[in-house]
Design a protein around this nucleic acid. Structure first.
Length: 562
RNA sequence: UGCCCGAUGGUGUAAUGGUAGCACAACAGACUCUGGAUCUGUUUGUCUUGGUUCGAAUCCAAGUCGGGCAACCA
């Protein structure tokens, strides 16, 4: 694992119904007690946090039971897939911290064997070539409440089927002219069993096999065979494949091949975002999102760009559990996971987002003091640094109120607060712009006895606020991210309503911060807690050494100061 | 409407015939040189109706509600 992954608590998840099945199987000696799982993405899009759930489940199962987990690309539809997507998927799974060892596979590597399996099915009278066009096909299939009718091709002889199938492969026919179908049951209440298509003609170049094939297997045929060829023991997939399971079993039984057990679980839904490939693609292509790695997106590359750590995502996936209930997980849990990790690990620094100038009237004009500040109160080993203190400072505008309510513990006329790691200051006067009435400057005095933030007379102040020295402050661009949608469940919309209506217009705000000098040395990829503001990530793409650009990963809990 | 699957506090998830617990969220208090963190406490739950049983979240039946399935996508 790379250094992104060092801070994990290696706890296995609590047991769930899938682990219960596996433990039962192991106890019964099924599959010789071994466990082999797989994560089988189609390389036609980017991975998101929902995939992370599946990845952590499959790889986690293999780790927990001493088995193996394969990364297999389900690349059976060349018109939608590309190596670019495959490369991005590999990068994301690795970043998440998982290792498939030698077990990287492609369904397309099995095309020859699959073709053999199809001809074997024909020989066994369990598959036939069908000449129905799409409309006729649908018509013959029937509807859930009424059985379908048999295709004329269903009675074709083995010899003719073999001949036609071979000619389909040879490229003799146009797309759509023929398909190969499994011969099962046109009256089945499960539509997937009404002689499903298992091969279709598609004259598209494949990103791995080029133009060698003009026909490609359908998911239902390719997937169970790939699992079987690889010796998968437990084929874990999402709920929508539940109705495909009889077909999965039928094909492998018809061919008398090793049959893994398909187990379905509920995919992840997260509040305030969308997860479907289609919607994500639309956000990217319409320009609402700034590419697949837009930090507001739930894509793994988006979360990475935002500053989320792999360990926090793994921790999240461990906590959400695995069931067959299709619910919505509160994004607050994800945020909790990253806060918990970063609270332990992120160095603190001071930065001001919305500056208000403070002049310390009794501080000598040119005096500068270097004050010691703790880098991480949760980690003594993180050490200390110094921050410069001078006559003119900036504090957060929200940390001052002219007419404060009862529970406001920060600066106000006549009130005293502590400047973090600095001195106590008392506000004497708020200077306003005579035209606008806006407060432009605070005139304060400091207590020289309170250096470092301690009062020798033991007097207490309720508020401690962050600050930067005006003349020493560095500027940096910062992006503040908020939830992409205002609706908790953007997918739950009334009919006729556009799911994009609940997009949050304020999901990204660009501004500037004034930072303490140490932050100017931030390197791309560094994470900090800006005290009292939140956790920030030096954007790895836009930051330059000495000129960081920060993304807010997540705010701190609580309301102050903004 | 045909088939399949599901339903436990606001959210997610345990309890596998024997005290309904945990996490997140919310709220309150303690502590605090981050209104952070930490600690303590509180609120809120077994979809409904029957049945089996000494005893049901759990087993059975019916119903209600939710999800999925009718691409030559995966």
């Amino acid at each position: 694992m790379n250094d992104e992954n060092t801070s994990e608590k290696n706890d296995e998840p609590a047991s769930d119904f899938i682990r219960a099945i596996i433990e039962r199987d192991r106890a019964a000696g099924k599959h010789g007690g071994t466990v082999a799982t797989r994560f089988p993405p189609e390389p036609n899009g980017y991975l998101h946090i929902g995939h992370a759930k599946s990845i952590c489940l499959n790889f986690g199962l293999a780790r927990q039971y001493g088995g193996r987990c394969h990364l297999r690309f389900d690349d059976t539809n060349p018109s939608k897939e590309s190596v670019e997507y495959a490369d991005a998927i590999i990068r994301d799974v690795q970043w998440l911290g998982w290792d498939w060892g030698e077990h990287l596979y492609y369904a397309s590597d099995y095309f020859d064997r699959m073709y053999e399996c199809a001809t074997e099915l024909i020989r066994r009278g369990k598959a036939y070539v069908c000449e129905l066009n799409t409309e006729a096909f649908k018509e013959y299939r029937g509807v859930p409440t009424r059985p379908g009718r048999e295709s004329p091709g269903r009675q074709r002889s083995e010899v003719d089927n073999l001949d036609l199938f071979q000619r389909m492969r040879a490229g003799e026919f146009e797309e759509g002219r023929y398909v190969l179908r499994a011969r099962i049951d046109m009256a089945s209440p499960n539509l997937h069993m009404r002689d499903p298509v298992i091969y279709r003609i598609k004259k598209a170049a494949h990103h791995r096999t080029g133009t060698r094939w003009t026909l490609y297997p359908m998911y239902d045929f390719a997937h169970c065979l790939s699992d079987s060829f690889e010796g998968i023991t437990h084929s874990v997939c999402t709920l929508e494949f539940e109705v495909h399971r009889p077909l999965y079993d039928w094909i492998l039984d018809a061919l008398e091949l090793h049959r893994p057990q398909q187990i379905e679980f509920a995919r992840l839904n997260l509040t305030y975002t969308v997860m479907s490939k289609r919607k994500l693609l639309e956000l990217v292509e319409s320009g609402v999102a700034d590419g697949w790695d837009d930090p507001r997106l739930p894509t793994l590359c988006g979360l990475r760009r935002r500053g989320y750590t792999p360990a926090s995502i793994r921790d999240f996936c461990r906590r959400i559990g695995v069931t067959k209930f299709d619910g919505y997980t509160d994004v607050a849990l994800l945020e909790h996971c990253v806060r918990e990790e970063l609270n332990r690990t992120a160095p603190r620094a001071m930065a001001v987002l919305d500056p208000l100038k403070v002049v310390i009237e009794n501080w000598p004009e040119d005096r500068v003091e270097e004050l010691e500040a703790v880098n991480n109160p949760e980690d003594a080993a993180a050490g200390t640094r110094t921050v410069p203190f001078a006559r003119e400072l900036y504090i957060e505008r929200g940390d001052f109120m002219e007419n404060p309510p009862k529970k406001f513990f920060r600066l106000a006329p006549g009130r005293e607060v502590r400047l973090r790691y600095g001195y106590f200051i008392r506000c004497r006067e708020a200077i306003k712009d005579p035209e606008t009435g806006r407060i432009v400057e605070l005139r304060c005095t400091y207590d020289p006895e309170t250096r470092g933030g301690h009062a020798p007379d033991g007097r207490k102040v309720r508020g401690t606020i962050h600050w930067v020295s005006a003349s020493h402050a560095h500027r940096a661009r910062v992006r503040l991210y908020d939830r992409l949608f205002t609706a908790e469940r953007p997918d739950d919309i009334a009919e006729g309503e556009d799911w994009k209506h609940s997009l949050n217009p304020d999901s990204r705000t660009e501004t500037e911060v004034l930072m303490e000098p140490s932050l100017a040395r931030a390197l791309p990829g560094d994470r900090f807690q800006f005290e009292r503001l939140g956790y920030f990530f030096a954007d790895p793409v836009e930051s330059k050494p000495g000129a960081p650009v920060f993304n807010r990963i997540v705010s701190l809990k609580g309301k102050a100061p903004s």
